[in-house]
Computed example of a mutant assay.
Amino acid sequence: MAVPSAQEFHWQSLARLSSGRVYHSLAEAGGQLYVVGGCDEAGRPINALDLYSPEVDQWVGLPPMPTPRAGAAVAVLGKQMLVVGGVGKDQRPLKAVEMYNTEEGKWRKRSSLREAAMGISITAKDGRAFAAGGMGADLLPRSILQQYDLRKDVWALLPSMPTPRYDTNTCLLGSKIYVAGGRQCKRCVKSFEVFDMESRSWATLPSLPCKRSYSGVTWDSDGRFHWLGGLRQGGLHQRSKFTNNTNIFDTQHGFWLKSEDTVSMKTKRADFACAVLRGRVIVAGGLGYQPSVMDSVEAFHPEKRKWERLAPMTTPRCSASSIVIRDRLLVVGGVNQIPSSAHEILYVKDEEIL
């Protein structure tokens, strides 16, 4: 399939959320978009569950979660949506685990985590969810890797990660779980590790090239990890700096591409939405050296080997949640001085939109 040109990408504003939202979680189940929890405009975790209905371009409020939470980890296991940890109304980590049945429209409480945690990263395969790391109630990072079995409603401990961390990035490729970066207290970590489910063992991969926070992370169809932009941590008496660096790790061969084999983004930015869409890496919005949040969008063309500007988002924002469903990038909520209710979709013009 040919890679679309920059002119073929278009944004459309869709129905807005009922209120501004940030630190919410997005999930796709059965090709439909769900928005789980988050913080409201007053910064309070909420228990809302919303479904976007493309036929009428409306949000439908579904039965609320038993536990209000923000920053929850969400895994979809067939018709079930598993909601794990996060931050509760008292601004402390949660151990509560709840599951929503998308066919029955009902919530059920499930076996809790061993301890309360926020900043968990989760991935799923074959009726099992794998939860990595997290920050405990003592604000210390965890090295725990645990597996949830849907049929048995049981959490089982797997061998711990070599590096404790939270807010890490995980990806399941075949029988391997890749865990990249994350944080320890306020410090970024460069650790990159992989867990082999068959041998039940961890291996250490070459570290991330530098310490950056609020980066964009995507995995392409060739199993390559793209680590984009972010805020580069300053040293003693040095300010952190926005960067446009692009680093790519080849999981098939186990190395980072050399700098001459990668191309930096046009704009230095952090805390932006990003995804791989129709063979192109897309970055949208975020924060940079501009005085306000950004609306600019760019996409990497793999054959031309350059970043190209796309049409800007209608609503500038950072900290937005995003997801790709049916070759469309949906960007929901975020912050533009206050939490935003914006919902926009990026699509290729030769296709019908949602």
Rank of each mutant, 00 (worst) to 15 (best):
W107E: 13
N336H: 11
L140G: 07
L346R: 03
S340N: 06
A320D: 04
M161S: 07
S322L: 06
A131F: 01
C188Y: 08
A116I: 10
T170Y: 01
G133P: 08
R278C: 15
S240T: 01
D350R: 14
H253K: 13
D50N: 07
F272G: 05
A72Y: 02
W59P: 02
K79A: 10
R108V: 14
S322W: 02
K109D: 13
R108F: 05
V74F: 06
A203V: 05
K176C: 14
I345K: 03
E352D: 15
N101V: 10
W307A: 11
R16M: 09
L329S: 06
Y289G: 13
P93W: 06
S111L: 08
R280V: 04
D57V: 09
Q91N: 13
L310Q: 08
Q238S: 11
W227E: 10
S111W: 00
W59V: 08
L330E: 04
V84C: 03
R128H: 13
R328D: 00
W107L: 10
Q337N: 10
V332L: 05
A129F: 01
K266E: 14
R183C: 07
P302Y: 03
L277C: 07
R328A: 05
Q146A: 10
G86W: 01
G279K: 07
K306V: 12
L228A: 09
H24G: 03
T246H: 15
V22S: 02
Y52L: 05
S111C: 13
S201I: 10
R212P: 04
C39K: 13
A73K: 04
E303Y: 15
Y347P: 03
D295H: 09
C39T: 13
G234F: 02
M81S: 04
D153Y: 05
S160G: 09
F255S: 13
A180I: 11
T67Y: 04
F195L: 10
M197T: 07
M294K: 03
V281G: 02
S25T: 15
G234H: 03
R128C: 14
G235F: 07
Q233V: 15
A29L: 11
T163E: 10
V35G: 01
R21E: 01
R309M: 14
D138K: 07
A75L: 12
L49I: 14
S191E: 02
Q238P: 00
